[in-house]
Design a protein around this nucleic acid. Sequence first.
DNA 1: TAATCAATTCGATAGTTGTCGAAACGTCGA
DNA 2: TCGACGTTTCGACAACTATCGAATTGATTA
Lengths: 120, 120
Amino acid sequence: MTAAVLRNSQPAPAKPARLTRARRTVLLKALADPRRFELLEKIARAGCPLGCAQARAALPISAATLSHHIKELETAGLISIRREGKFHFMSLRPGVLESLASTLSALEQVPCGPAEGQPR
Amino acid sequence: MTAAVLRNSQPAPAKPARLTRARRTVLLKALADPRRFELLEKIARAGCPLGCAQARAALPISAATLSHHIKELETAGLISIRREGKFHFMSLRPGVLESLASTLSALEQVPCGPAEGQPR
DNA sequence: TAATCAATTCGATAGTTGTCGAAACGTCGA
DNA sequence: TCGACGTTTCGACAACTATCGAATTGATTA
C-alpha cells in the first residue's frame, strides 16, 4: 500500500507518453462499452492477474462474448494476457489509462475564455 | 482572464464529483467518435464560445451531422450552448472531463500486486 | 488414445449509430 | 410580409458491434 501511495503522491508530472488520435479513439471505444469497462475494472481491482473463469463468474455474459471483450481490451492495449496452458490471466497494462486521463485533462486547460462558467 | 487563470491554478484537489456508471458510459460513448472528439477539441481550444459556422468550417461533415454531434455532446453534458438568435455558441462545460479523467486514473491505483509491470 | 475442460472462432442476428439529403423551423433584414 | 440564412428534425441507409449457440482448437488427464 505504501508503494502505491507513494507512486500516487507524486503529481505525475505530465510525462505519460502522448497518444495519437487513432490510439486515443481505440482506447475510448474500448472503454465505451459498459460491460467491457466493468471487466476492466475487475481486472484492475484484482491487482493480481485475473483468470477468465473469475471474470466469467463476475459478468453475466457468455464465454464467447467474454472472449470477444477480452480481445478488444488486449487489442486496444489496455490489458496484457499471460497464457499458461489452458488458462489465461489478464492484467492491466500500466500507464495506458494514465495517458488517456491526462489527454482528457489537457483539454480542460482553457487558454482564454473565463466567462463561460454558467452561460445559463 | 485572471479569473480563469486563478480557477485553473488551483490544482483541483481530487473531488471532481464521482461519476455514476451510466454517466461514465455516456461520456465515454460521446468521446469515442473521432469527429466528435475533434469537435470537442476545437471547442476547448477555442477558449471563447465557438460558433457552429466555425465548427462547420473545421470539420468535413454536413450540417445535419454536425448538429447531431453537437446534440450528443450537449446531452452528455460535455458542452453547454448559448443560443443567441439564430446563432449558437458552444463552450466546454468545466469539470466534466476532469471527472472522467480522474475516474480513469483511479483504476490504475493497483491495490496489491506491484509485480505485473511486464508480465512479458 | 480418448475424454474433458478452457478458451477461441464461426455464423447469424438484433440493435445502435454515423452519415446524408430534404424538409421544416426560427430569426433577421429588406 | 417575404426571402435569406442558420440550425434542427425527419427518414433512410450503411456500417459497425454486442450477443449468442455451436463448432473448433489446444492443453491436461485418465
